[in-house]
Write a protein that binds this DNA or RNA. Structure first.
Length: 279
DNA sequence: AACAAGACCTGCATGC
DNA sequence: TGCATGCAGGTCTTGT
């Protein structure tokens, strides 16, 4: 489910109920997520105050008052729900954090591809889950030169490279497709050929797509909800994702004449693009 | 080193 | 109705 815009939307929704609050109770209803929950998670979180909620790529980072950091990843189907303490748990509610304000934050994840882990703030960038991540696309210094350097030597399709979190942190299948559309670049082009002006176009397209998607509260296809339960709306603005056979919004290609949005499979994932507009 | 394929897990839409 | 199949927003491991 969640790519950078969905994760950022969740982070922003969670911040008002977690930042500055103390965690008074932790219930781990199920520990076998993508990796086992830390065995002493409840004990290490109980009594801690959350100083700040951050994000790195698709990870939400809760900085605690004892120098530890709680890392959360939503996997494919993870959701976070805010509710009043004591609400009845639902199927697939795996972890519940309750604050001193009587509010519960519920981690819900049917497929259990998500995870939680603990790290230390001081050495956070060397945490095994974060150490290899590529640049943050919304950092001010992310640009075509940074992106081109990351894509250098890539002989496979640029679309597959964009899904590699060591190239850029936070893109997933939706926003990789949408970014390539906005940059008018073919997803089949070799990654290493994205240099100079093309790299500048792609970097700018990535920033624009992610920024627009965050402003829309992310994309709600199946699972994504904001912590208060609201849907994101960016799915209504997709140019190509999940639009196989429909007209391309950017050109006059006609689906009836073999034009329009195509779906291909790259590295086992669906890619959507307009072969007329994207070169 | 980089890449594709498979594995992990559940739910849903589709077709017979 | 039941059942099989394929697909889904991610990433880790394996083998080439």
């Amino acid at each position: 489910m969640p790519e950078l815009p969905e994760v950022e939307t969740v982070r922003r929704g969670l911040a008002p109920v977690l930042e500055g609050r103390r965690i008074v109770r932790v219930t781990a209803r199920r520990a076998d997520l993508r990796r086992p929950l830390p065995t002493d998670l409840a004990r290490r979180l109980a009594g801690r105050r959350v100083d700040r909620l951050g994000r790195r790529g698709k990870y939400i980072l809760a900085h605690l008052d004892d120098g530890m950091v709680l890392l959360m990843h939503l996997g494919m189907s993870g959701r976070v729900r805010i509710e009043s303490a004591g609400s009845a748990p639902q199927t697939h509610d795996h972890v519940v954090l309750t604050t001193d304000a009587g509010v519960s934050v519920v981690f819900h994840d049917p497929r259990r591809f998500g995870l939680m882990d603990l790290g230390q703030a001081e050495t956070l960038s060397t945490h095994p889950l974060l150490a290899g991540l590529g640049p943050e696309p919304l950092d001010p210094d992310f640009d075509g030169a940074v992106l081109a350097a990351r894509l250098a030597g890539r002989r496979g399709p640029v679309k597959a490279a964009l899904l590699d979190q060591t190239v850029v942190a936070g893109l997933g299948n939706i926003y990789a497709c949408e970014s390539l559309f906005r940059a008018r670049l073919s997803p089949r082009r070799r990654g290493g050929t994205i240099v100079g002006r093309r790299a500048g176009r792609l970097a700018a397209a990535i920033v624009a797509v992610l920024t627009d998607a965050i402003a829309a509260g992310g994309s709600s296809l199946r699972d994504h909800r904001r912590p208060g339960g609201e849907l994101g709306t960016f799915q209504h603005r997709f140019a190509v994702y999940d639009r196989e056979g429909l007209a391309c919004p950017g050109c006059t290609c006609d689906p009836a004449d073999g034009g329009g949005i195509r779906r291909i499979v790259q590295s086992g994932r669906s890619t959507f693009y307009c072969a007329m507009r994207q070169r």
